[in-house]
Design a protein around this nucleic acid. Structure first.
Length: 226
DNA sequence: GACTCTGTTGGT
DNA sequence: ACCAACAGAGT
């Protein structure tokens, strides 16, 4: 059935992603994450890495060459990779934010955009806490997909008789169904779903992001400020 | 059936 | 004021 004529076309389409690489002088564009990530891996091969000197298990300093990042990653090479690949994930969710602004006819946020490519503090490592899993993946996009996949162990449908029990270490949550579990799992991974293309801020839901944009654009402030 | 949005709550 | 988490409703 075709979409209803009067519904707002605010659906975010992954097929409309425009992913721009901002590594060093690079400005390649991609429309899917697979190609973008594999492109990024080419930038990272051998980047400040010498066998025998920069041992993967010893600490070092890794300057990130992503434009307007200017971060010196202190730690192991694996910490640097996690940082570098987070830029790719950040590009993706910022692009989702851009689509959102466009499709809802909003004005962008008015904060300074010097922070647009700054990435937040990440966990020391991205390790899956699902029972008996313990998988560690240094690429946030791939890590989040991995965790998400654990929800596939539950049957389809919205009304499961026994629900979908989270098996994350120490978690007792029983979600209503596997879709709720997917949502819940993001609270364990701190995965964000959307980011502001202007200031770079990350948000856990689309409504939070829309609130942010409206607030920053000064549109109809609902609070008692002044 | 597979998401997606919205309102409430509770913590900082 | 801000935000994460959740339940339940809506598409």
């Amino acid at each position: 059935m075709p979409p209803k004529p009067n519904t707002k076309e605010t659906k975010i389409l992954m097929s409309e992603l425009m992913l721009l690489c901002e590594w060093g002088e690079c400005s390649h564009q991609f429309n899917n994450m697979e190609e973008f990530l594999s492109h990024m891996s080419q930038h990272l091969i051998g980047h400040h890495y010498e066998v025998g000197r920069d041992d993967p298990n010893t600490d070092g300093e890794f300057p990130c060459e992503w434009r307007e990042c200017n971060t010196m990653v202190q730690g192991r090479r694996t910490d640097f990779l996690r940082h570098a690949y987070f830029h790719c994930f950040h590009v993706k969710i910022k692009n989702i934010g851009e689509q959102m602004i466009r499709k809802m006819g909003l004005r962008g946020c008015l904060l300074e955009n010097q922070s647009r490519n700054l990435i937040p503090e990440l966990p020391e490592r991205l390790q899956c806490g699902w029972n008996m899993c313990e998988t560690i993946i240094d690429n946030p996009e791939i890590f989040y997909r991995h965790v998400d996949n654990h929800s596939e162990t539950f049957p389809e449908g919205n009304n499961l008789e026994h629900g979908a029990r989270c098996e994350w270490e120490g978690c007792e949550t029983v979600a209503k169904n596997k879709y709720k579990l997917r949502e819940h799992l993001r609270s364990h991974t701190q995965e964000k779903v959307i980011a502001c293309p202007t200031c770079g801020g990350l948000f856990s839901s689309r409504t939070k992001f829309v609130d942010h944009v409206k607030r920053q654009a000064g549109v109809e402030c609902k609070c008692m400020c002044i």
